[in-house]
Amino acid sequence: MTYDDPPPPLAAQANALRSLLRLAELHPELPGAYVVSHNIDADRIDVQLDNPSSFEAWREALTASPASVRSKPCEDRELLEFTAPAHPSTIRVYAIFPRLTNDAGASA
Rank of each mutant, 00 (worst) to 15 (best):
D5A: 02
P6G: 07
P6H: 01
P6F: 05
P7M: 01
P8C: 00
P9G: 04
P9S: 09
L10D: 09
L10K: 04
A11S: 13
A12S: 14
A12F: 06
Q13W: 00
Q13K: 06
Q13A: 11
Q13R: 07
A14L: 12
A14V: 11
A14N: 09
L17I: 13
R18S: 14
R18D: 15
S19H: 04
S19C: 14
S19I: 05
S19L: 04
L20N: 03
L20I: 08
L21I: 09
L21Y: 07
L23W: 07
A24Y: 06
A24K: 08
E25H: 02
E25F: 01
H27M: 00
H27R: 05
P28Q: 01
P31M: 01
G32D: 13
G32Y: 11
A33P: 05
A33W: 10
Y34G: 00
V35Q: 03
V35R: 12
V35D: 02
V35P: 00
V36F: 07
V36N: 02
S37A: 15
S37M: 04
N39F: 12
I40H: 09
I40C: 10
I40M: 11
I40D: 15
D41H: 14
D41N: 13
A42R: 08
A42D: 15
A42I: 06
D43Q: 15
D43P: 08
D46Y: 05
Q48A: 15
Q48G: 14
Q48D: 15
L49P: 04
L49S: 08
D50T: 12
N51P: 06
P52Y: 04
S53Q: 11
S54P: 00
F55Y: 10
F55A: 06
E56M: 05
E56W: 01
A57G: 01
W58T: 00
R59L: 03
R59G: 08
L62H: 08
L62I: 13
A64G: 07
A64C: 05
A64T: 11
S65F: 01
A67K: 07
A67N: 07
A67E: 14
S68E: 14
V69I: 14
V69F: 10
V69K: 07
V69Q: 02
R70M: 03
S71Q: 11
S71R: 12
S71I: 10
S71Y: 09
K72S: 09
E75I: 13
D76F: 11
R77M: 04
E78M: 12
L79S: 09
F82W: 06
T83I: 04
T83R: 11
T83N: 02
P85D: 08
A86W: 10
A86K: 03
S89M: 08
S89Y: 12
T90W: 14
T90G: 00
T90E: 11
I91T: 02
R92W: 12
R92M: 07
R92L: 13
V93H: 01
Y94A: 00
Y94P: 00
A95C: 11
A95D: 04
I96R: 03
F97K: 01
F97Q: 04
P98C: 02
P98V: 02
P98Q: 01
P98H: 05
R99P: 05
R99Y: 02
R99G: 03
R99V: 12
L100T: 10
L100E: 09
T101I: 11
T101Y: 10
T101M: 09
D103S: 15
G105N: 10
A106I: 15
A106L: 15
S107M: 14
S107V: 14
S107L: 15
A108Q: 00
A108K: 00
